[in-house]
Design a protein around this nucleic acid. Sequence first.
DNA 1: CCCCCCCC
Length: 591
Amino acid sequence: MKDKLTAGALLRIMKGQEVEEPLVQVLVSKKISSRSAETERYRIWASDGDYSITYGILTLPPGKPVEDFSIIKLKKFVKSEISNAKGPQKILLIIDSEIVTPGHQIGVKIGEPVTLTDEIIASETSSTPKVSTSEPPVKQPKSEQSTSLNQSISETRVLNQINALTPYHNKWVIKARVTNKSDMRTWSNSRGEGKLFSFDLMDDSGEIRCTAFRDMADKYFNYLQVDKVYYISKCQLKAANKQFNTLKNEYEMTIGNETIIEECLTDDGHVPQVKYNFVPISALAEKEVGNLVDVIGICKEASEVQTFTSKSTNRELRKREITLVDQSKTSIALTLWGSQADSFDATNNPVVVIKGAKVGEFGGGKNLSTLMSSQIKLNPDIPECHRIKGWYDSEGQYDAMTNLSERVGGVGSFQTAWMSLKEVQDKGLGHSEKGDYFQVKATILLVRSENALYKACPTDDCNKKVVDLENGMYRCEKCCREFPNFKYRLLVSMNIGDFSGNQWVSVFSSEAEKILGKTAQEIGLTMRDDSEAGTAIFQAANFKQFIFKCRAKMENYNDEQRLKIVVVKVDPVNYEEYNGYLCEQIEALMV
DNA sequence: CCCCCCCC
């Protein structure tokens, strides 16, 4: 049957090429308003057998609609573009056409046409129909049933509401917007292994989570897109697992073989968009750890993506930390994970909108973290977004911010972050799981230059010590690779002292570089070429004063417990702040 | 049928 259509004609037309009277099949048509009484207009979904378009506008004489599945000859047509809520939309205006075979004589969709996207139109250079590409196109997945939901719905107009779905009814169709879609994930446990993804659906009655496993996950992952509206039918419902599913619905559902999902061709705006309940950043100080919040903020700063391995799960994790600010003149750190971290683009201080970010705490400061279920949007077209952008551009960018994520350290909430070295000993710091933090103004008394440098894996995010294979190669056990090179890193042991005592501490590369005033690489090369000059670099740090922000933790060493202190940050002494602390101490003595 | 939501 495919030879009844002009294969690839729609792609060639949409690419702007000349095509002589092509034959295409009308898959779905829906009457839309016409500006003239002499004509009727239909929005159609049309196929050339290889490709389909979802936005054809067919002009016909009044009272002569075209049956679905009809083959028509396009005699006069022009490609055009309109803009709608989703941005520019390529359309095909069909001004004159002729029915070659009426739909009832065909009755089926011919071939498996792929929906033409801007990407396909831009990328396909060949004018011949494509056979296969490595990139899976976003096409309508095949379902058991051939009737189109777009068609049947427009005829019968029976829709069910999400909050009325139960496991006891299976004849339903919902029209819902995808508000969120997870990454594809794999699992492996005693009951088996596989892959899955889930997505959240919303209509004006409520919301529900839907999960696709294994082959169903493959079938629908690319097709379903966040923010688009779909007709969905015949999923399996079951009680929602409230432990993991925070959506407001008693049930959740699973895609099965018999499930039908079809993009709604007429997103008329009746299906609501996501609503936010924004919390000002300053108010996050009062939120409890674990709360989910909706936040809007300007991305003032963003780190690069960092990769590391979780010690608890052994999983490779990728994160990006960004700083959000808003009109409350407060900033907070937000951690993005996985693909959300990878794809984040901090160019031009975007407005970041998050639904369902998790409030966390670190070192006494508050922070935010996205979960798999968090929806993140950059510069969405909502009033709050324009308002905050206006604020930031005109004044916010110059304002000083109170940083909620500032680490204040301390063992108990009543403790000051400041501590003398004697207090660190007396208070028995270091017995908590995550270690205890404190800051101290101290003087460097002695720096050990021996073993202060090590040869580390040259990979950007891996600082693991390499094994010198003594054949010109260096092996990193963490990366399981051998390299012809390495980078120098610092791990400096130094004794620091204040009025109350002294303490050995370890200082890693980034902070040691601040103290020594040279990079680890410079010091490493100097040490290699001239050990005396290298040693002098370390000696030069003696008697310098800094604010040391430290983590104290008890460690087992040869069956003996001892306090290990790592300097997590070194700052020059801010005398104003330090004097303030001293004044407080003096006042406390006078009570 | 997943169910991890992480790190300093």
